[in-house]
Design a protein around this nucleic acid. Structure first.
Lengths: 177, 177
DNA sequence: GTTAGTGCAAACCTTTTGCAGCTCT
DNA sequence: AGAGCTGCAAAAGGTTTGCACTAAC
């Protein structure tokens, strides 16, 4: 039976990313504490710049470079996953804790909304790749781009308006590049 | 029944990417012809720089910018897919025609080999996302990183050697950044 | 007291943009 | 002829690096 929705138990047995950083030779600095908490708490998908701005509210002296270095560390330690979200808004990377169960990301190319898909098909895909190829999966990422249910309706309307010689509405503001 | 391996029929009914470029207002220039042929023919996953170098062999005057512009065009026209291959070798993007059936990419994080997975689970995942969310999928991308069967064995050996105080072998040469 | 981590400045890689001139159709 | 495309130079966005100083253990 297929299951949608977030399961409660963390997949790695870790209670927080912050705890997992306690490894030999690693130091839990003020800056790292702030960043880890922001990542763990955040419901959104944060990119380095966004995370930097949030961190700056708590510690105005924090440097952008520290954010990048911390993210790199977390990525190497498999504590966060790196996403692109189909490069909808530029080429930056987004980050999320691994405390949640594996899921796919659906990015609406019209409104930018990101939805998450949890469910059996993902686990099945992973299992099949592992068994068929003997491939040991460390990270997996499924991202799809398209139109969310809401925007599909709006697009039909837009097409009709366009056909009626009306100029198409401007797309939503994006980060310029 | 699950099916592995490349099916023959192209998913979009197109015979080549080159043909598909014949749209109103678009011109099939010498440079584009070269690039399209390279992309269609290439078995590997090419990034912009690699494609540029290959194109330069045929037309030494071609400019890197033209490569980027052509790739952007093809991406917009849904004629190629953009991949990251888990950023194994840097942050550039890789491209492949859509003439092949949908597949996932498995990137070995030790040797860099990229394998492709075709099969039912992918189609099932797509179908489920579409039906459950009413999401209209335009592009889908599944990438997994881990260790290929071959490297798993080698890693065990490396671990044993490391335990015996021998310094671990240097990782394979990557693009510096 | 050591060693890891930080901030700063500067570099780096990849990709995009502005513009004058060229070339497909 | 004219819109579309190219090459060149220069810029931009995102990320990394070198180094002296600071702080966690």
């Amino acid at each position: 039976m297929t299951c949608y929705g977030l399961k409660e138990q963390p997949p790695m047995g870790a209670r927080s990313t912050q705890e997992s950083l306690k490894k030999p030779g690693l130091r839990l600095t003020r800056q790292r504490r702030i960043l880890l908490e922001l990542i763990d708490r955040s419901g959104h998908h944060l990119d380095a710049e966004h995370l930097y701005r949030l961190a700056k509210e708590r510690d105005p002296g924090i440097n952008r470079v520290t954010v990048y270095r911390t993210l790199k560390l977390l990525k190497q330690g498999q504590l966060v996953d790196e996403l692109d979200l189909m490069h909808y808004d530029g080429d930056q990377h987004y980050y999320e804790t691994r405390l949640k169960q594996e899921h796919a990301h659906m990015v609406c190319l019209r409104c930018g909304k990101v939805e998450e898909f949890f469910g059996d098909p993902l686990r099945k895909l992973r299992r099949e790749i592992e068994t068929h190829f003997g491939f040991q999966i460390l990270v997996a990422r499924t991202e799809v781009g398209g139109y969310c249910a809401h925007c599909q309706v709006l697009r039909v309307r837009e097409m009709q308006e366009a056909a009626a010689q009306a100029p198409p509405p401007a797309p939503p503001a994006r980060r310029r590049r």
